[in-house]
């Protein structure tokens, strides 16, 4: 499936992975795809989104407000949360290190998911959330419907708008954007490019 992505669409996907890393999130979600689409160096729809009044700083702020950052994969916030239900993470860790050596608890679990077209994608940069995978599947469907041979940044944006329920869509809606109007503008961008 990935071979039908334009160079730019691949850049957007890589940008989403990078955004996930930057924010310290576990999975690549629709919000990270949106941040990548806003990156002018990667995406031809960045200008269109900026014109509509969306910018990366604002989106990042909205994401922070909604989900916060968790830069440590298994850090203080986890320890605190576990303490709230009576589990002493330090004690668990030291028991495990007694038996299995230092850092026994540190290995990040790998949970490959292979559902759907894009289920196997990993990019060694974290997995894609079900919604983000859905966005990429919808991008493909948009391209098929439009009889486009390749999937570009525009199709990813169309997929994002069609999915409609992810954090990205929520952020856009809360910023006062009309998703249907944004969709029309994106479709018009194709006509202008053609």
């Amino acid at each position: 499936m990935f071979e039908r992505f334009t160079v730019q669409a691949r850049e957007v996907v890589r940008g989403a992975v990078a955004a996930r890393e930057r924010l310290g999130h576990r999975n690549v979600g629709t919000e990270h795809l949106l941040l990548a689409l806003l990156d002018e160096e990667r995406s031809s729809v960045a200008g269109l989104l900026h014109e509509a009044g969306v910018d990366a700083a604002r989106v990042t702020e909205a994401i922070d407000r909604k989900v916060g950052r968790d830069t440590e994969e298994f850090g203080d916030r986890d320890a605190e949360a576990l303490r709230s239900i009576g589990i002493d993470l330090a004690a668990v860790r030291s028991k495990l290190e007694e038996s299995f050596g230092e850092g026994a608890l540190e290995s990040p679990p790998s949970q490959p998911s292979r559902r759907g077209f894009f289920g196997g994608w990993d990019f060694s940069g974290g997995r894609f959330s079900p919604r983000a995978r859905k966005v990429l599947e919808l991008a493909l469907r948009e391209a098929v419907q439009l009889r486009h041979r390749e999937i570009g940044a525009e199709h990813i944006l169309l997929g994002l708008l069609r999915e409609g329920n992810g954090l990205a869509a929520l952020v856009l809606t809360e910023a006062g954007l009309d998703l249907a109007e944004l969709r029309r503008r994106t479709l018009r961008a194709f006509d202008q490019a053609a």
């Binding site: 994969e73 298994f74 916030r77 986890d78 320890a79 949360a81 576990l82 709230s84 239900i85 589990i87 993470l89 668990v92 495990l96 299995f100 026994a104 608890l105 540190e106 290995s107 990040p108 679990p109 949970q111």
Partner: peptide, 20 residues
């Protein structure tokens, strides 16, 4: 938020424990 965060932390602990 507090309760669900504990569930998330517990799941992370479970995943790691299972790997070990």
């Amino acid at each position: 938020r507090v309760g669900l965060r504990a569930v998330l932390a517990l799941r992370r602990l479970l995943e790691r424990l299972e790997v070990v």
